[in-house]
C-alpha cells in the first residue's frame, strides 16, 4: 500500500471532523508529505476516494502550494524565506551562501538525500530575518555561520 493503514486511518478519522468530504485534504497532504517526503501521483490516487475527488484534482491541489511537493524529496525540507522583509535583511545573499555550502541550488535535493532546499514567500517571521524553516522548526536571526551549524547537524 502506498499509504500505510495506520496513516490512512488517521487521515480518515481526522477528515470526519470536516463538514465536507474534501475538507480535510490539506491536513492529509501535509501528513503524507511528512511521512513519505512527497505526495506522488500514486499517493494522490490513494487519497482521492477518501475526499470524493479525482486523483488529478488532488495533484492539482499539491501543485498549488509551495510547501507541498509531488517530487520525491530529501529527509529534511529546508526553506529560506525570501519575501520582502527578509530580502531587505539580506535573505537572497543568505540563500546563495547556503546553496554554496550545500552544493545544490533551490529546488534540488542533496546527493546524500539529506536535504531538499527551497525558498518560500513569507513565513511570518519578518522581525527576525534572515530565517529558515527546517521541516516544522523555525531558525531565526541567522547568519551564514549559525545556519551552517544547523544544517550540518541534520542527520
Amino acid at each position: 500500500m502506498v499509504i500505510s493503514k495506520a496513516i490512512r486511518d488517521q487521515i480518515e478519522a481526522e477528515n470526519a471532523n470536516y463538514p465536507r468530504a474534501r475538507g480535510g485534504l490539506l491536513a492529509a497532504l501535509h501528513r503524507v508529505q511528512r511521512e513519505y517526503g512527497a505526495i506522488t501521483p500514486e499517493h494522490a490516487t490513494a487519497l482521492a476516494p477518501i475526499f470524493d475527488m479525482t486523483a488529478v484534482e488532488v495533484l492539482a491541489v499539491v501543485s498549488f502550494y509551495d510547501m507541498l511537493s509531488s517530487q520525491p524529496a530529501g529527509r529534511h525540507q529546508v526553506r529560506v524565506c525570501t519575501n520582502l522583509s527578509c530580502s531587505l535583511a539580506g535573505a537572497r545573499e543568505f540563500l546563495r551562501e547556503i546553496e554554496n555550502h550545500l552544493g545544490i541550488t533551490r529546488g534540488e535535493t542533496s546527493a546524500d538525500g539529506r536535504i531538499t532546499l527551497g525558498h518560500e514567500a513569507c513565513l511570518g517571521a519578518c522581525a527576525n530575518a534572515p530565517m529558515m524553516r527546517v521541516d516544522d522548526r523555525y531558525y531565526e536571526d541567522l547568519d551564514t555561520e549559525s545556519a551552517r551549524q544547523v544544517l550540518d547537524a541534520l542527520d
Partner: peptide, 9 residues
C-alpha cells in the same frame, strides 16, 4: 471522466 485540472498558481 475528469481528466483535466489546473496545475500551479
Amino acid at each position: 471522466t475528469g481528466e483535466l485540472a489546473v496545475f500551479g498558481r
